[in-house]
Simulated assay, not measured.
Amino acid sequence: MLPNLIEQEALLRALITLGTLISDSLSLRKSVHSGVRDLILKLSESDPNSDTDSRVNQCALKLVDLVLA
């Protein structure tokens, strides 16, 4: 679902939901699909020319800490 979201608000809400679901479970964090990991990494990169909302960027940065830690 995540790679198909275009609207920034929908993407933000989906990232928040993912973070909520995996925050308390190490096994769920480890089972995050590699495609989702790649997307999170891409969204966490700060690019001034990008259309990515800064809230999406900040949320993705927090997810990087959770998923890749």
Rank of each mutant, 00 (worst) to 15 (best):
L26S: 12
L5S: 00
I40F: 08
S34C: 07
L63G: 02
K30W: 05
V56G: 03
L43S: 05
V64H: 00
A60L: 08
S44A: 15
L66C: 09
L26Q: 13
M1P: 13
D65K: 15
N57W: 12
R37D: 02
N4E: 13
P48A: 10
S46W: 12
A14R: 07
L2H: 01
V32L: 06
V56A: 02
T17L: 13
K30P: 00
L28Q: 08
I22H: 05
A10T: 09
L11E: 05
S54M: 11
M1V: 15
L66P: 05
L26D: 11
R55W: 07
S27M: 04
D53H: 10
L26A: 14
V64R: 01
K62T: 06
A10K: 07
E7A: 04
S25V: 03
K42N: 10
V67S: 01
A14V: 14
E45A: 13
L5F: 06
A14L: 14
K30Q: 12
K30F: 06
S31C: 09
I22D: 06
L61F: 03
E9L: 02
R13F: 12
S27E: 09
S25N: 10
H33Q: 09
S54F: 10
D47Q: 11
K62I: 06
D65Q: 15
H33V: 08
L68A: 01
S44P: 10
L39V: 09
L66K: 13
I40T: 08
L39S: 04
H33S: 08
T52G: 00
S46Y: 14
N4K: 09
L39P: 10
N57Y: 11
L39D: 05
S50L: 11
K30G: 09
E45P: 03
V32F: 01
L66Q: 14
D65I: 07
V56P: 06
L5P: 11
A10R: 06
D51Q: 14
S34R: 11
R37H: 03
L18I: 14
L66S: 13
K62G: 12
M1N: 04
D47S: 12
S50P: 12
S31N: 13
V36P: 00
S54G: 00
A60H: 02
S44M: 09
P3K: 03
D53G: 03
S23H: 10
I6Q: 15
T52Q: 05
V67C: 00
V56E: 01
S31D: 11
A60S: 04
D24G: 15
A69P: 04
L28S: 09
D65Y: 08
L21H: 11
M1L: 15
V67F: 00
P48C: 06
N4M: 15
L5C: 03
T17V: 11
V64G: 04
R13N: 15
